[in-house]
Design a binder for these strands. Structure first.
Lengths: 154, 154
DNA sequence: CTGCCTACTGAAAACGGTTTTCAGTTTCAG
DNA sequence: CTGAAACTGAAAACCGTTTTCAGTAGGCAG
């Protein structure tokens, strides 16, 4: 479920929901951002498109969008609950710790890791929640490109 | 940094901190639980060992323990901020969605996934945050062992 | 068009978990 | 003993989120 106006409108209609000016402002704000946004940041961004928007409506709309899969919630070890536009297929999110930009990656082959974990722990693994953070290409270039380090696994 | 009294005491001493009766109650509660506990659950459990313990102290102690790596914070798609005792080495946590038990697994070979993500997104990946949930062996057996499904990857 | 019904809205209040403040208390060194 | 610093719990403050409420907007039947 991608974040384009048409499919959003369709999903809303299917549920008997209306795609109002306020909701459209929230959708547009998240879609335009690219980076992960907190509810408050969404509020600020959406207000530029619809100044009389209320924070309450932002929360309600984000919940709806999350339900229909148009946005994804992202978490991290130290922060919670930011939102990013979701791509069309299953994927995970890499968040740039420098600029906040969020990029999806879809080549997520967790079978090996999940299987190993299942074998070691005896659990039947039903869900995995993976989130990566790092430095995006742009920030890396801006910082003088110290080169890839291969850090982070283990 | 494991959760045994000796190394905790040492870590505290190194930082000029005191391992008081209250703090020991918190440490013991987390260590004894095995399962992931919210701050409030830690509070309840620790109170059985030290009834005059205050919630404030629980928060303060969990923060210290988290800093010295004796407990680990766990998150999930829908909830945040539970605590589990940390093992001695780098590992990740599998939380049982039925009973809350938390188990560590250390055979975490994320190189392949991290490399693939780095290649696809152009990011330099510096951190990964992986958390699995599923059904532990005991709950699985209790439920009539429908057998491992291999779900959850992708 | 009008009237009605339902989804929707923002402001304000309520909520709940976490952090800070404060006035002691404990612990330790000297 | 004295003094200094870490530590404590209760209460207040804080802050992001959710609920309540009275009113608004918009689609549809007539």
């Amino acid at each position: 479920m991608a974040l384009d106006a048409d499919s959003i409108a369709r999903s809303f209609a299917e549920r008997g929901l209306r795609l109002t000016r306020q909701r459209r402002a929230v959708v547009d704000a998240v879609a335009a951002a690219g980076a992960s946004l907190s509810a408050l940041q969404v509020f600020d961004a959406a207000r530029e498109r619809c100044p009389e928007l209320g924070l309450t409506t932002v929360y309600r709309t984000l919940e709806v969008l999350s339900e229909i899969g148009a946005v994804r919630r992202v978490h991290g070890p130290d922060h919670c609950e930011a939102f990013v536009p979701a791509g069309a297929v299953h994927g995970h999110t890499v968040v740039c710790s420098s600029c906040g930009r969020a990029t999806e990656f879809t080549q997520c082959d967790m079978h090996a890791v999940v299987d190993a974990a299942a074998r070691q722990t005896g659990y039947e693994i039903t869900e995995h929640f993976l989130q990566l953070s790092g430095i995006c290409a742009a920030c890396n270039a801006a910082a003088g490109a110290p080169g890839p380090s291969g850090k982070g696994a283990g």
